[in-house]
């Protein structure tokens, strides 16, 4: 196990979450008072972020958006590289997505392949009115034409490193570290 380098401590992470919340509240649908999107976290890392974001948005607006979780393991494009696998959690949505606004939420945006898979997965659960993307951290390095609607923090990380968002035992966001790939 290689050494982890701290990128964001808890206080810094709290500030990043507030930035992300402000960016989301500045989006056109929030400004126009339209229907609230469902915050759908991409498993696994996006789910804790989605819950925390929904809570923060709820503090400002009075009602918290509904939260869901999306498992994309059967939609990934690297099955042939990684062999058979089984996801730890399933997709859990508040309901059919048809006609809904959806805000996909992930912890780290990198190549864009996860988001590509998530877009394919989402439309298998209905036809959303719109799909947006909010990410806690954007580390660059895109391999697909994917751009987030809201970003908490941008950072440069060497390609041979992995960014991990860690949670405490209660499942709350705790810190962000960088580790070397094995």
């Amino acid at each position: 196990m290689s050494e982890a380098t701290l990128l964001l401590d808890r206080a810094h992470l709290d500030q990043v979450m507030r930035n992300l919340t402000d960016e989301i509240l500045a989006l056109p649908w929030a400004q126009s008072g339209g229907d609230f999107p469902w915050f759908i976290g991409i498993r696994r890392g996006g789910v804790a972020v989605a819950h925390e974001l929904a809570r923060l948005v709820g503090v400002t607006l009075g009602t918290a958006p509904q939260v869901g979780a999306l498992d994309i393991s059967m939609y990934r494009d690297d099955m042939w590289l990684k062999g058979p696998r089984i996801a730890e959690g399933q997709t859990e949505l508040p309901g059919d997505l048809t006609g809904r606004r959806v805000m996909l939420v992930d912890d780290v945006l990198y190549t864009g392949r996860t988001v590509r898979a998530a877009l394919n997965a989402v439309v298998d659960f209905g036809r959303p009115q719109s799909v947006g993307l909010a990410v806690l951290l954007d580390r660059g390095g895109r391999e697909l034409p994917i751009a987030p609607d809201a970003t908490g923090y941008r950072l440069d990380v060497p390609p041979d490193c992995k960014v991990q968002v860690r949670c405490d035992s209660a499942g709350r966001l705790h810190s962000v570290v960088q580790v070397h790939n094995e």
Binding site: D71, M74, Y75, M79, P84, I86, A87, Q90, T91, D96, N120, D124, F125, G126
Partner: peptide, 18 residues
């Protein structure tokens, strides 16, 4: 794994691109 596949079979769109 079959339990996860069963969840797919209970959706309206019963299809995975895998």
């Amino acid at each position: 794994l079959a339990a996860q596949m069963k969840a797919v079979n209970q959706r309206r769109i019963k299809k995975l691109p895998t």
